[in-house]
Write a protein that binds this DNA or RNA. Structure first.
Lengths: 197, 197
DNA sequence: CGAGCGCTTGATTGAGTTCAAAAATCGTGG
DNA sequence: CCACGATTTTTGAACTCAATCAAGCGCTCG
């Protein structure tokens, strides 16, 4: 029960079980089924989501009604619309479950709370933010400089586990191409006797 | 002399001139001429750059030798390769001056130093990071969901001042299109009797 | 078992790139 | 202050990658 969650914070900040207990008013466990929403466009993102088990995603829907997946999050990942949560704005994004999942919902006060209990989390939070920035920057560079095929290869390299769990059309949406195009990319790779597994 | 710099921190954190003085070992003023480099690919980013006057840019060069501009920074903007600076990695980016500029170079210790002097800067730094994330996310969405024309219109709306100071081919590089394409976008907008100025 | 969803394939279209070259603008030294 | 070379912007034509539209296949789950 929330083993991943407790382990995540113990490993990162050497926080004790008792200290986590003292914060328990600032988080709660939630089970969600495939397809359930944790956030909808126009709503406010009141939580950061820690994925205890399962798989969730964040995505936007553009003017033409097309989905664009911003991020996946499986076990031990944190996901949140930081803009909405931090700036108290209504969100441009949807967050829903791709698989039946167990999610720990962290209140806005959680980060401050854990920093109070253990100040080293100040650093850890900062690191998470910098990591996020680095990741987004890579994504931008990929979209500007790389072909669909290159982006696909990077993705399966970086997230081999997700590749098996995420439907292909969602991966396409993450990569910024249509499902048809991704299908062709894969066919062409196969023809050039490229074996991934 | 560094009026913008002092004003920026006074306005944001109510820090006194004396307190800024106490940090003066952690920053220094530098004059750079158009074309001068502040950072090169492969180097380490040891500073955050505050633009006192002038205009600088950060960009990457891809496998085909093409430039991709990540960010512009004019007066009162901060610019840095956060990944390189924060994680002590070698940088993927170049930073150089588009105009003759006066830049305040902030040492890595500057942020910690100013937080020590005035703890409210902890919050301000966090806000800057969140803003950065929000901005990058918008950019990703633009690249995935919008046409070159839409991105161009957003840019001139958001940064009308930069539009006048940045050469067109650089704006193209920021928007993720070729200079030729941007030229055509502008011609077509003009033909549809769209007047910006 | 059938309806719907996801994946594939084919044909066509289209936004943006590439290559080439002309026109406009800039900047710098004489 | 002008002129000349370099850079920037524009235009044209051919091309390319990926999108769109349309159809068919196969699986699953209700």
């Amino acid at each position: 029960m929330l083993n991943n969650f407790y382990h995540f914070f113990q490993a990162n900040g050497k926080i004790s079980m008792e200290e986590m207990e003292s914060l328990k008013s600032l988080y709660h466990r939630e089970e969600v089924k495939k397809g359930d929403f944790l956030l909808r466009e126009g709503g406010h993102c009141h939580h950061t989501f820690f994925v205890e088990s399962g798989l969730i995603r964040m995505y936007a829907i553009d003017g033409q009604g097309k989905e664009h997946i911003v991020q996946f999050a499986c076990e031990n990942w944190l996901l949140s619309d930081r803009s909405s949560a931090y700036f108290d704005e209504s969100s441009d994004y949807f967050i829903d479950a791709i698989e039946d999942s167990v999610v720990v919902m962290l209140d806005k006060g959680f980060v401050d709370g854990i920093i109070e209990v253990n100040p080293s989390f100040q650093r850890i939070n900062e690191r998470l933010l910098h990591n996020h920035i680095r990741h987004l920057q890579k994504r931008i560079h990929g979209l500007m400089a790389e072909t669909a095929e290159e982006r696909y290869l990077e993705f399966i390299n970086l997230y081999p586990d997700l590749t098996l769990r995420v439907p292909q059309w969602m991966m396409a949406s993450y990569l910024g191409v249509t499902p048809e195009s991704l299908s062709r990319v894969r066919r062409d790779l196969a023809k050039r006797n490229f074996k991934s597994y």
